[in-house]
Nucleic acid binder design. Sequence first.
DNA 1: AATTAAGTTGCATACCTATGCAAAATAGAA
DNA 2: TTCTATTTTGCATAGGTATGCAACTTAATT
Lengths: 364, 364
Amino acid sequence: MIEGMKNNITSIDVARLAQVSQSAVSRTFTPGASVAEATRAKVLEAALRLNYRPNAHARSLITGKSRIIGLVLSYLENLFYPAALQRLSERLQKDGYHVLLFINQTSNADDLVTEILQYHVDGIILAATTLSSDLARSCADANIPVVLFNRVMGNSGSNNLQSVSSVRSDNLAGGKEIANFLVKSGHKRIAYIAGNEESSTNLERERGFREGLADHGAHIWGRATGNYEFAQARLATLELFKPGHEHPDAIFVASDHMAFSVMDTLRYELGLRIPEDVSVVGFDNVPQAEWGAYELTTFNQPLDEMVEATASLLQERLSDQEKSAGKSIVIAGNLIVRKSVKIILEKIDQKVLVKPKLKPKVKT
Amino acid sequence: MIEGMKNNITSIDVARLAQVSQSAVSRTFTPGASVAEATRAKVLEAALRLNYRPNAHARSLITGKSRIIGLVLSYLENLFYPAALQRLSERLQKDGYHVLLFINQTSNADDLVTEILQYHVDGIILAATTLSSDLARSCADANIPVVLFNRVMGNSGSNNLQSVSSVRSDNLAGGKEIANFLVKSGHKRIAYIAGNEESSTNLERERGFREGLADHGAHIWGRATGNYEFAQARLATLELFKPGHEHPDAIFVASDHMAFSVMDTLRYELGLRIPEDVSVVGFDNVPQAEWGAYELTTFNQPLDEMVEATASLLQERLSDQEKSAGKSIVIAGNLIVRKSVKIILEKIDQKVLVKPKLKPKVKT
DNA sequence: AATTAAGTTGCATACCTATGCAAAATAGAA
DNA sequence: TTCTATTTTGCATAGGTATGCAACTTAATT
C-alpha cells in the first residue's frame, strides 16, 4: 500500500499520463465528441492504468442532467411492487439511467420529493403515492417530469395536472369485467373488500364493479375494507362472515395480496371451501396468484406494458425541450380465470374466458 | 407562468435577495457552521420565497461525500429481499443517506459497481451477490466501504478480505438446528433441496445440516438442487419423489421461497399431505411462512438485526478516517416451529422449541 | 474607557468536468 | 506545390457549493 496514493483520480491525472489535454480526456468519455482514434486509445489506456472513472457529480453539474430517476414506493409487502420495481429498474438501466430509491412507508411523499430534488434528478416516478399540488408545481418549475405509476392525481392537484403524467391499467374496465364474470357464472350474493378508500385504484375498481353489477340489475351485497393490508383483509373477511348470518357466495377483493389473506381466512379459520362455498377474485395477477395453494382468478395488470409506457413517457419528456403536456396512459388488462371461482350456471358467455387483445388507450 | 423564470435557483440568488454573501447562505444550510441567528433567518426566508434547495452534486463535489449508498440486489421474487430492501432503505434514510439501487438479474456485479463508483457513493451494500477481487480493490483504493449482506466473500477475493465486511445470519447453526430437530422428531429419510450451489448461504446451510445429521449418526437421504428458484424447486421435488421409489419423509429446503414451491408440488401435484406424509422445513422466515396456506417451520433470519448491523458497520467505516479492517458479523437466528413438520416421536427435546436468546457474535 | 476574547462575515479559491472558440494539424483538391 | 475544407486539439471558462483566512463586529473583562 503506497503512502502517497491519490484516492481520487481526475481527468487531469489521466491527461498528464497520456500526454494530452484534459479536454481530450473528457471528449474520450463523451459519446459523439470529436477525438482522433489515436488519442482516444492513449487516453483509454491511461485511464485503465489509473483506474479512472468520470465523476458523475461534476458532469451533471455542467450538463444539467444527472441521469438519475427518483423512484418513490410506499410499501413492498404486496408483491406487485417488487415486481414493478425490478422491471422499472432494469428498463431505466437499459436507457443509462440510475434509480434513486425512496420508500415512504412512514414519511410523506412531499418531504421525500424535496430530498429528491436536491439531486436534480431527471425525472420522478411515484408508485402508489400521490403528490401535493405544491410539489407538483415545484417539479414543473424545475422542469422535472413526474409520472404517477398505478395511481392518478387526486383532486388537490387537479389544476397542475398538465405537468404530471400517469400510467395505470384500466381499473374501471377490470372491475366491470369481474362483475360481469361473477354474475354470469351464477353468483347471487357478491361482496367487495376494498383497498385504501382514498386511492384512485380502489375508487376506480369499485366504481367499475358497481357499474358492471348494475348492468345486470345486481348490486354489492356486502362490503368491508381491507385498506390493501394483509391483516386488515382478514378482519374484513370475518366481518362479512359473521356467524348466524347468510354469507356472500362471491368476493371481489381489490388486490391479490389481500385476496390471499381472505382465502386463508376462509379456509383455515372459517372452514369454507374455495370455490365450492365461496368464490374469490383478486386484482393485479401477482406471481403468487398462480401458485397451487391459491389458483386465484384475477385481473391482470400488464406490468411490462405499464413499465414500458412509463419509461417512454419519461423519455419523451426528457428529450423534448418544450414542456409537453402531461399524458395519462391507460393500459388494457385482462381477466385470468383460475380455480378460485365456481361456475354455477353453464350459460356463461365464452367471451369472458378468452384473453382479449391488449390495446393501450391513450388519453391526454 | 412567468416567462423569464429561472429554473435553477442558486445560493447566489438567495444571497442577493437576503442581502448577504453566498457564504452566509451556504453556512445556513451547513449544520454546525457559524451564522448569526438573524442572518440565518433572513436566508431561510429568502430561500423559502425562491424555493431554493442546495445542489447535492455541487456539494458532494467539494465535500467528497455524496450521502449516497449504492445497493445491489440480484432478485426480488424471494420476499426476503424486498423486506430487507425496505428496512435497509428506511434505516439509511434515517441517517441521512440515500439509496442508489441496482438490480443485477442479468448483468454482473462488477459492471454495476463500476457504474456505482461514478457517483462517488459513500458506501456499497451487496445483497446476495459477490464481488470480484478487482472490484474489491477498486473500492478499497477509493476508500469506499463495502458490506456484503447475506453472503460472504468467495475464494477469489480472499486476499482483499480486509477491505470488505459482511453481515449474515448463522447459517451453519441454522442448518445444524434443523437437522437436530428433524432427527429428534423422528424422521428417517431426510432430504435436502439446495439453493444456488456456489452461494455461501447454501454452502453453509448444507454443511451445518450435514454436521447436524452426523451428530446423530444420520446423513442426507436424498438431494436435489432448486437453485433458489421457484420453478426449479418444483422440478427438484418431482425428482425426489419419482414414482415407484421410496420417498423422503422430511425435506429441508434451503429457502422459504423454494419451500412454498415444494409444498405446492407435494400437495397439488403429488397428492401428499403435509406434515402427515412429508415434513417440510424452510429457511429465512419470510412473512408468507406464517400464512395459513403454508404454516412453514423455518429458521428465522433476524432481519432487523442484520439491517442494524449493516448500517452501523457502514457508519463505523464512514466516520473512521483510518481504514478499519473489514469485519464479519454473524447474527444468531432461531427456529420457528409451525405446522409443516410432523412430530413422530414425543421424546423431542423441548429446548429446540424455545426461541433462544439472540446474541450476535462478532468475528474480525 | 481600554483591552481581549469570541463570534460573524465576506473574499477568494477549489472541487472536476464539459464545451464554445480559435488555433493547429491533417486531408483533400487543383 | 498551394490553397481550401475538414478534423482535431488546447485554452479558458462555467456550473453551484464549501471552507480557510483575514477583516470585521459584538460581547466580555478589567
